[in-house]
Write a protein that binds this DNA or RNA. Structure first.
Length: 120
DNA sequence: CGATTGACGTACG
DNA sequence: TCGTACGCCAATC
């Protein structure tokens, strides 16, 4: 079974890897959106792929703070995919991000744009 | 191998 | 302002 996994792990240049890299750069207590990451990578219209990357981020090392990634509305669209629907919200609150009704409060203020912060 | 789905976003009416 | 349609690419059925 390690055969298939090894092949993917050996590539280390996939679109997913780039997504993981950006997500891991998200400062604690901050959040970003799938579109922002996708745009930063040059695939603004492929924001869905970012979501797919997150889906594969489970078990990645170092741990990918997927809970810091939300949709354009600041809604915890991916909370459903965590171990528990409350895990994502709990993690965000733990980092100082206020979440109400599965929605990030002050999202605009906590928004972390890689294209801006990283100043490519 | 073809059709459908999906942690989104933008465009159009 | 709100609702619907489309695009994008990979994985799954």
């Amino acid at each position: 079974m390690s055969d298939k996994v090894k092949i993917q792990d050996d590539k280390l240049s996939s679109f997913f890897e780039q997504v993981y890299a950006v997500v891991r750069l998200i400062p604690k207590g901050r959040v970003t959106s799938y579109g922002a990451i996708a745009k930063y990578l040059g695939t603004a219209k492929s924001s869905r792929m970012v979501g797919w990357a997150m889906n594969s981020s489970h078990g990645q090392t170092p741990d990918v703070p997927a809970h810091r990634v939300v949709n354009r509305n600041g809604l915890l669209s991916g909370k459903n995919h965590f171990g528990s629907p409350d895990a994502m919200e709990k993690l965000l609150k733990k980092e100082g991000v206020k979440v109400k009704n599965d929605q990030v409060q002050d999202f605009k203020k906590l928004f972390w744009d890689p294209a801006l912060e990283l100043e490519l």
